[in-house]
Computed example of a mutant assay.
Amino acid sequence: MSWLDGTLTSIALCWRIERRDGVTIGLTAHDRDLMIGGLVYRAAPGMTPSAIQRGAGLDADSMDVTGALSSSAISEGDLLAGRWDGARVEVFATDWTDPGERVALGAGTIGTVEIADGMLTAELKGVAAGLERPVVEETSPECRAELGDKRCRVAMAGRRRFAVVTGIDGAVLTLDSEEPEAGCYGGGRLRWFGGANSGLEDAVARSDGATVTLRRAPRFASPGRIELIEGCDKSLATCAGRFANVLNFRGEPYLPGTDLLTRYPGG
């Protein structure tokens, strides 16, 4: 590329960040905004990447990006709320005098995020990070499938319901309607469709009548409309009695465990 071979360089580093909900922003280390591929890359001169290390082995490639928090792009509240968790990031270089051609420098997802004194440091995990996950499942007495997925096969039609949060006390939410079956939301999911938590998800620990207890308090104490998705305690008894789905149970409740080694005659 001619713009890389010139006496005077005009290289600008750019970041394209796409959240899991589809929100996409562009940032550049140049001192002016750049239009690339229909997306405006906002000037953020404080954004600097660490050295990118690559090798021929199977070790996961990673890099850090450090920069100042900006309420118009990435705010501290959104980071702490988890809106940027797992966001897809592309890092590339381009010619700021004629944006268009790119030199890819790295891609991955946002991992660990640290915030200190108005500055954020985000770890970018490369594709090879997926090799760090277990290849096969471990045996377990509880079901390893998620309620309604392709292995569980329980039909979720009618098991999703909308409600309105009328009160918040820590991790306990008060709703405008009661659950259709005792404890049916325990182990399920809650999606926010209104208020400051809109677009976020929470795990439900248990439910009782018109109250739902989350595994952690909501990010913002802001009532709003929610969608409740039924859950499962992953036991064989619940799978058989509540869902009549024991043929798809993905666990080994009768497989001897390590406690078998401690047994002895007459024990």
Results as ranks from 00 to 15, higher is better:
Arg88His: 09
Ala43His: 08
Thr94Glu: 13
Gly231Asp: 12
Arg32Pro: 11
Arg219Ile: 04
Arg16Ser: 10
Asp259Val: 00
Ala210Leu: 01
Asp117Ile: 02
Arg16Tyr: 07
Arg225Met: 00
Leu79Pro: 13
Glu18Val: 04
Ala122His: 11
Pro253Asp: 03
Thr262Ala: 09
Val246Gly: 06
Arg144Phe: 02
Phe249Glu: 08
Gly188Asn: 10
Lys125Pro: 08
Ala107Lys: 13
Arg191Ser: 13
Arg160Leu: 15
Gly126Gln: 09
Arg144Tyr: 06
Ala87Asp: 11
Gly187Trp: 13
Gly267Phe: 06
Ser207Phe: 03
Glu227Phe: 05
Val164Ile: 04
Ile17Ser: 04
Val165Leu: 11
Phe220Ala: 01
Ser140Tyr: 13
Phe220Tyr: 11
Cys184Asp: 09
Met35Ser: 12
Ala44Leu: 05
Leu69His: 04
Gly148Ser: 08
Gly100Gln: 04
Pro45Gln: 08
Arg32Met: 04
Asp33Ala: 10
Leu105Gly: 15
Thr211Gln: 07
Ala237Trp: 06
Asn245Phe: 01
Leu173Asn: 11
Gly251Asn: 14
Thr97Asn: 02
Thr112Asn: 13
Glu101Leu: 14
Gly257Ala: 06
Asn245Leu: 07
Val89Cys: 11
Asp95Glu: 06
Gly37Asp: 10
Glu142Trp: 00
Asp85Pro: 15
Ser177Pro: 10
Leu39Ile: 08
Thr109Ser: 14
Val127Trp: 10
Thr94Lys: 14
Ile226Asp: 02
Val135Ser: 12
Gly106Arg: 01
Pro256Gly: 02
Leu200Trp: 07
Val246Met: 12
Gly118His: 05
Glu181Asn: 08
Glu201Ala: 12
Gly199Val: 01
Val246Cys: 02
Ala217Phe: 11
Arg133Asn: 04
Thr213Gln: 04
Leu228Met: 00
Ala155Asp: 13
Glu227Tyr: 04
Glu76Lys: 08
Arg153Thr: 14
Thr121Ser: 07
Leu147Glu: 01
Gly111Ala: 03
Arg215Glu: 10
Pro218Tyr: 03
Ser177Ile: 10
Val89Thr: 11
Thr211Tyr: 02
Trp192Gln: 04
Asp5Phe: 15
Asn248Leu: 04
Ile110Pro: 08
Ala157Leu: 15
Val103Leu: 04
Val212Gly: 09
Pro256Ser: 00
Trp96Thr: 01
Phe220Asp: 02
Asp31Met: 14
Ala128His: 06
Leu228Phe: 01
Ala56Val: 13
Arg215Cys: 07
Gly22Asn: 14
Ala237Asn: 03
Lys125Ala: 09
Thr66Val: 14
Ile168Arg: 02
Gly126Trp: 11
Ser75Leu: 01
Leu147Asn: 05
Glu146Asp: 11
Ala87Pro: 10
Ala244Lys: 13
Gly67Asn: 09
Thr24Leu: 12
Thr97Leu: 12
Glu76Gln: 15
Asp21Lys: 00
Leu200Asp: 03
Glu138Asp: 10
Leu124Pro: 03
Arg225Tyr: 08
His30Cys: 00
Glu123Pro: 09
Leu4Ser: 12
Val113Pro: 08
Gly111Tyr: 06
Ala60Pro: 07
Arg225Asp: 02
Arg242Ile: 03
Arg133Lys: 08
Gly194Phe: 02
Arg225Ile: 02
Cys232Ser: 12
Asp5Trp: 15
Lys234Val: 07
Thr97Trp: 01
Ala145Asn: 14
Gly38Ile: 03
Asp98Pro: 09
Thr139Gln: 10
Val154Pro: 06
Leu120His: 12
Arg161Gly: 09
Thr48Glu: 11
Gly251Pro: 15
Asp208Glu: 09
Ser71Gly: 08
Leu261Tyr: 07
Glu18Leu: 12
